[in-house]
Amino acid sequence: MSEEQINEEKKSADELKAAYWRENLIIVGVLLFFWFAISFGCSIIFVDQLNTIRIGGYKLGFWFGQQGSIIGFVFIIFIYTRLMNKLDKKYGFEEAE
C-alpha cells in the first residue's frame, strides 16, 4: 500500500470514530434529559403540581420521588445498553466474543 492509501484509510477510520462518538453523545444527552426530568423535574421542581394527580393511593409526585424515579433509572440504563450495543454493531466497533 502506498503512503497515500494508508493515510486515506487512517482518515476514514478517524471519521468513522468521530461519527460514532457524535451518535454516542446524542444517546447520552437524550437519556440524561430523561434522568433529569424524572428526578429533579417530577420529584422536586414540579412535585406539588403532580401531587394533585392521584394513581390509587399514590399522589403522583410522591410516587415519582419514592418509586417512579428509581424504576425510571433502571429503564434508562437498560435502554442505554440496548442502544449502545446496536451502535457498536452499526460501526463495527463491537468486541470479539
Binding site: 447520552v28 437519556l31 440524561l32 434522568w35 428526578s39 420529584s43 412535585v47 410522591f62 420521588g65 419514592q66 424515579s69 428509581i70 433509572f73 434508562i76 440504563i77 442505554y80 445498553t81
Partner: peptide, 26 residues
Amino acid sequence: LISFKGYNSSVYLMGWTGGYVLLALL
C-alpha cells in the same frame, strides 16, 4: 430515615440510585 422524614427522604432514594445512571452513561 424515610419513616421519620416522609417525602423529604426522597433525596437519599434518588441520590443513591440516580448516581448509577451517571456511572453507566458517563
